[in-house]
């Protein structure tokens, strides 16, 4: 009885699936879209923070911060990062204070209670460039510039994606994909858009932010501020903003794994020891 019942239930589900399958096979069509044809995987990017022994290159982080401050911060917030956090980039207390002072953060007039702005202090978070989403939308052709704090964790291949996007703008009229195909005219970005094959729908609202060598003036002894170099540096900086504890995590990992290996080997020997009399075959 149980057997017949179960077979009936089984037939119900399998019949339903078979029906879906037949309809599916009849209409079978591999997905196809211009986005799929033209969307490119991010370029390779190697950062010193990569890998199990990865460490931040503090000079690079400072350069990346400079790029953020002078270019990106015009439109993009960094709301999860406080000025005090910048000490991890190798700035001393006075430098952190000076950086904070350079930013105007929202404040309240202590005498009148009116909303105003004041120079930042170390415990302040990076201020948002727009008062709210509506203002951000209005100033940017209806596209809100996303917050950058977690950007490299919020996208597949995070830092490589940021780097590719910044250096990947192309002219839709002359661009050819890997198969040598030109972009169909109807897929050209609208007047307010910008063609970028590293962006999922190929049409990015952000105009190319890094356009010329020396757009950001790096200090003595730094590499030449080419567009490529600035893009790398800001990608590295955003790895840090997304996970300031990355270095500590990796550094903690090794002793933990080392200890576990040691303890597991001891445990294995003890296990062999305990079972010594039970494992013998006659």
């Amino acid at each position: 009885m149980a057997r017949i019942l179960s077979i009936l239930v089984g037939l119900f589900f399998t019949a339903g699936l078979t029906w879906s399958l037949l309809v599916g096979l009849f209409n079978f069509e591999m997905p196809h879209s211009v986005e799929k044809d033209f969307h490119k995987h991010p370029k390779e990017l190697h950062l010193s923070s990569d890998g199990a022994f990865g460490k931040f290159d503090r000079q690079q982080l400072q350069r990346g911060f400079q790029v953020y401050k002078e270019v990106c911060s015009a439109c993009h917030s960094l709301r999860l990062v406080a000025f005090r956090d910048l000490a991890a980039l190798g700035y001393n207390e006075a430098e952190v204070k000076a950086i904070a002072k350079g930013f105007q953060v929202p404040g309240i007039d202590p005498a009148t209670g009116e909303v105003n702005s004041r120079p930042g202090i170390a415990t302040d978070y990076f201020p948002k460039p727009f008062a709210n989403d509506i203002a951000a939308r209005a100033a940017n052709n209806n596209a809100i510039p996303p917050d950058l704090s977690l950007m490299t964790k919020a996208r597949h291949d995070g830092p490589a994606y940021v780097y590719s996007l910044l250096t990947g703008y192309a002219d839709p009229a002359t661009y050819k994909n890997e198969q040598g195909k030109a972009l169909p005219k109807e897929n050209y970005p609208p007047a307010t858009g910008h063609f970028n094959p590293y962006f999922a729908n190929l049409n990015l609202a952000m105009a190319p932010p890094l356009t010329s060598e020396g757009q950001v003036q790096y200090g003595e002894g730094s590499p030449k501020p080419t567009v490529d170099q600035m893009a790398r540096d800001v990608a590295a900086f955003l790895v840090w903003t997304a996970e300031p504890k990355l270095e500590k995590r990796k550094q903690t990992g090794w002793p933990v794994l080392g200890f576990l290996l040691f303890a597991t080997i001891l445990g294995f020997l003890a296990f062999k020891n305990v079972w010594a009399d039970k494992k013998k075959k006659a």
Partner: peptide
């Protein structure tokens, strides 16, 4: 020697737990 290994294994677990 055999006792020692068992004790060492248990101690290692204890140290790990404390850490």
């Amino acid at each position: 020697r055999r006792d020692f290994i068992n004790i060492a294994a248990v101690s290692a677990a204890g140290v790990g737990g404390l850490a």
